[in-house]
């Protein structure tokens, strides 16, 4: 575990729903289908071309599969006394601290595919556009209660600009 991205002492990252990985793997599988179809089509014309495309499809699948896993495991958040700490990113790691008193609004969003997998994103906005604090892939129940807790804490800590 990288030092700067470790959870605060005495606490552990709350991880997000494993359905996030499942959804992304489904998307990966769906996007490999055209490649696989191309491999089959080429195989009838030339064995070699079909083989190469087939191997490429498998490699892409394996790499994307594990990348999804790494990205999923990188997500984590901790609700602390005065702020929310969020981390994510496997290659480009990030850790964001948003004081409750600085929150302008809490945004709860889910796209159509995410809804089908029962996933919701919670995003925190401050007066800074560069604040990048969102928790992806929460279950609707977790997202709802997180939003309610954050809103309540935001009101209690409200510090204006």
């Amino acid at each position: 575990m990288d030092v700067p991205f470790a959870p605060p002492p005495g606490q552990a990252w709350t991880s997000v729903s494993p359905r996030l990985a499942r959804m992304r793997r489904a998307l990966v599988a769906a996007s490999v289908i055209p490649l696989a179809a191309a491999a089959l089509g080429l195989a009838s014309a030339s064995r070699l071309a079909g083989l190469i495309t087939g191997i490429a499809a498998v490699l892409v699948l394996v790499w994307a599969w594990s990348a999804v896993g790494r990205n999923f495991r990188s997500w984590g958040y901790v609700e602390r006394a005065d702020d929310l700490m969020v981390t994510h990113g496997a290659m480009f790691k990030k850790l964001t601290v948003v004081p409750y008193g600085r929150m302008q609004l809490v945004d709860v969003k889910a796209g159509p595919i995410e809804r089908a997998f029962g996933l919701v994103n919670v995003k925190l906005h401050t007066a800074a556009a560069t604040t990048d604090a969102q928790v992806r892939g929460l279950s609707p129940a977790d997202a709802g209660s997180l939003r309610d807790r954050l809103t309540a804490l935001g009101e209690a800590h409200g510090a204006g600009l």
């Binding site: 990288d2 700067p4 991205f5 290659m91 480009f92 790691k93 990030k94 850790l95 964001t96 601290v97 948003v98 004081p99 600085r102 401050t126 007066a127 800074a128 560069t130 604040t131 990048d132 604090a133």
Partner: peptide, 10 residues
């Protein structure tokens, strides 16, 4: 200060 971030690329 609105929020704080640590970032590290590869």
């Amino acid at each position: 200060t609105q929020s704080l971030r640590i970032a590290a690329g590869p």
